[in-house]
Amino acid sequence: MTAKQLTKDPYNIIITGVGGQGNVMASRVLASMLVNNGYVVTIGETFGASQRGGSVMSHLRVSTRGSWSPQIPKGKADVVVALEPSEAIRVLCDYGNPRVKILSNTRPIHPVGVIAGELDYPSMEETIKSAEDLAAEVWFIDATDQAVKLGNPILGNIIMLGALSALGDLPVSIQDFKNVIQNSMSKDKHDINLTAFGLGEKLIQQ
């Protein structure tokens, strides 16, 4: 299959969040969709002990030219997908640039320092303003809240993927998602995941 030319090659995606939010799963599913569409994808991730309550980041490099470094060079992210809002801001310090796009969940997970009252967590308004200051375009969606309504907060990551596909920079659709989960998920989970993906698309299209 010949892949369509990308707006930039390699096209660099960062999926970020906090351990336990389904970050790794989201990056695998997205990468599989892209590989099935003929792209060479390299994913870099950290997981293991370092993720107990810590920030988790996956770097996806989408290319028609070959494998790239599993770490994106500094200042070269094209889109940041944040499963947790303050993580969107954290990522920009190293990987942001004036052309970057941000797609973020609104549900905060307080760092332990905030729980302890030692640090302050910014208000949603402050976070949105920070994001707008540092990025070309920003979207904030209530993915976790919507996922809780669907019955499981973990579906927030799939809602975010649906939303990402609706941004239109990446050649992936709900049909590609369907093809991937058919091989990687047990059958009883297909419907709810498709609903979550579709919901994410709608949250952007509205």
Binding site: R52, G75, S86, I89, P111, V112, G113, P122, E126, S130
Partner: peptide, 26 residues
């Protein structure tokens, strides 16, 4: 890697906008 201007702005934003996430038991 990025303009000094952007880097300085991002650095300042992160300090207030992304409180440090220390490791913790689940």
């Amino acid at each position: 890697a990025k303009s000094e201007n952007y880097a300085a702005k991002a650095q300042a934003t992160v300090i207030s906008g992304a409180p440090q996430r220390d490791l913790t038991f689940c």
